[in-house]
């Protein structure tokens, strides 16, 4: 039971990372794609939305990793060995995104330097979600692990068609979330409509990529695909996710941005829950499961109270931070 709870905590941390950190990456995507007469204003809205919160949002990833190596050490070491290269790329992206963002903000370096770092921030924000998605896809298929070949940093067997589609889907999803949130944060009707159009476009792309990834899942990983499509919950979950996605689109069309933000978030939660449910009870395909990779009970029993106590401190602080910076807009 305890190992399942820890797996649930990791999934919850990943969900929160997607909802909060994912949207920060998405903001960078729209910085890269800022166009038209309001490009500079778009960038300003994005910067203001991200600046106070991105570092706190980023910690969800660290929490997920710490929980993984604490509660499922063999799964962590398997991922670290087999997916060495995508993880390195992801880390480089994370480092460049964060550093470039503060250099742009606090660099005091004049316009050229601000623009240069803005560009680095935007490109890193766009590439990193793809790599994160590819990593998740590779954990799902376990192709690299199943191959049994001694890994090298020069080999590319972690990158298949399915993995790449999951990567692009992740990018579209993060961009969608960001645009949906930014419709609320933008202060003029024109800017709100800019982000509204972007959110709709990203939502449609995400839908198409989700379909493509689902089709590619069959050949890439039978086990995952079978559970995703053949479980008792498959149809209700797919129906609900589709309904929520369409609901978010409808709310964006009718400019009910406050509600659209919430529904867009729910859509992402459902996607990740679906992935988790189809993956269960496997952590790293093909062989590492929640039961087989779990740390000794002695560990889980002492860390569990820490998680509860930590949450009691964490969630009120987070709520306060979001209230200070995200309330009072609109």
């Amino acid at each position: 039971m305890l190992p399942e709870l820890f797996a649930g905590v990791i999934l919850a941390a990943l969900v929160l990372y997607a909802l909060l950190g994912g949207a920060d990456f998405g903001g960078g995507v729209w910085d890269l794609l800022a166009r038209g007469p309001r490009a500079a204003d778009q960038r300003r809205v994005i910067e203001r939305a991200i600046a106070p919160v991105w570092e706190a949002n980023h910690v969800w990833l660290i929490l997920a990793v710490v929980m993984l190596f604490t509660a499922f050490p063999p799964a962590f070491s398997a991922i670290a060995i087999d997916l060495h290269v995508p993880l390195v790329l992801m880390l480089v992206g994370i480092v460049l995104r964060g550093s470039a963002f503060v250099f742009r903000q606090y660099g005091d370096g004049g316009r050229a330097s601000t623009e240069r770092w803005g560009r680095v921030f935007a490109i890193a924000s766009t590439v990193t979600p793809v790599v994160i998605g590819v990593t998740v896809g590779a954990i799902t298929t376990g192709a690299r692990r199943a191959s049994g070949v001694p890994p090298s940093t020069l080999d590319l067997s972690w990158l298949g068609g399915f993995e790449l589609l999951v990567g692009l889907f992740t990018l579209a999803l993060f961009a969608f979330l960001a645009a949906a949130y930014l419709t609320v944060e933008a202060q003029t009707p024109e800017l709100r409509d800019d982000f509204r159009a972007r959110a709709i476009g990203a939502s449609l792309s995400a839908g198409a990529l989700a379909g493509a990834a689902a089709l590619a899942a069959g050949p890439a990983t039978t086990r995952f695909a079978d559970r995703l499509t053949g479980s008792w919950w498959s149809l209700p979950l797919a129906g609900l996710t589709t309904a929520v996605a369409l609901g978010a689109l409808a709310l964006l069309f009718t400019r009910r941005f406050g509600l659209a933000r919430v529904v867009a978030g729910s859509q992402v939660v459902l996607v990740l829950l679906g992935w988790g449910a189809a993956q269960y009870p496997v952590l790293v395909a093909p062989d590492l499961t929640i039961a087989s990779a779990a740390a000794p009970a002695a560990t889980l029993e002492v860390v569990w109270p820490v998680l509860i106590a930590g949450s009691v401190l964490l969630f009120p602080s987070l709520y306060w931070m979001l209230r200070v910076f995200k309330a009072g807009q609109r």
Binding site: A56, V59, I62, L63, V66, M67, F69, T70, A71, P73, F76, A295, P296, A298, T299, V302, V303, V306, L307, G310, L313, L314, S317
Partner: peptide
């Protein structure tokens, strides 16, 4: 080491979050 040092790392995670 994960099962042994996961505890301080978890505590550190919350401190860093704060």
């Amino acid at each position: 080491a994960g099962p042994l040092v996961g505890l301080p790392f978890s505590l550190e995670g919350f401190a860093f979050f704060t």
